[in-house]
């Protein structure tokens, strides 16, 4: 059976991504332009006001939000970067064998210690 996978990858292999990107961009631009040209335009002050279920809008819309979201984002950044370390490890898992496994167990142990700590610290307590 003929397999489709190349053995050696070339930079040219990545070129089609550009084509795909061009296509996507073209489609998006097309729909934007067309809808802009086709649709009617009738503005009024009341209509332009931001929607708050019919009640008059109060204050700035871009208000500070709960810090929990921020904490979530920060945690993601940290843990996601830890996950980055696992990708090469996972791909080469079999070659690394037992040594690699034990090392990663230690790594994950530390990760989990930190994880347990932040949970205990109340990161997911949205009530307060």
């Amino acid at each position: 059976m003929l397999l489709a996978t190349p053995v050696a990858y070339q930079p040219a292999d990545y070129l089609p991504i550009l084509i795909q990107f061009g296509l996507a961009l073209a489609f998006v631009a097309f729909s934007m332009v067309v809808s802009h040209l086709v649709g009617p335009k009738r503005n009024s002050k009341v209509k332009d006001a931001s929607f708050e279920c019919g009640i008059e809008s109060v204050g700035n819309a871009r208000t500070p939000i709960s810090v929990k979201y921020f904490l979530t984002a920060i945690l993601f950044v940290l843990f996601d970067v830890e996950v980055i370390f696992m990708y090469p490890w996972a791909v080469n898992f079999r070659e690394l064998g037992m040594f690699g496994f034990v090392e990663m167990l230690m790594f994950m142990g530390l990760l989990l210690a930190g994880f347990y700590y932040i949970i205990k610290k109340g990161i997911l307590k949205w009530q307060n």
């Binding site: 810090v67 921020f70 984002a73 920060i74 945690l75 950044v77 970067v81 980055i84 370390f85 090469p88």
Partner: peptide
């Protein structure tokens, strides 16, 4: 590079935390 990324992430966490603290 991996280590730089990891450290940069930690820096991001701390740095954004500091900036948020100041913003508040």
């Amino acid at each position: 590079v991996f280590f730089i990324m990891a450290v940069a992430a930690a820096e991001v966490a701390v740095g954004l935390g500091i900036i948020v603290m100041i913003y508040r």
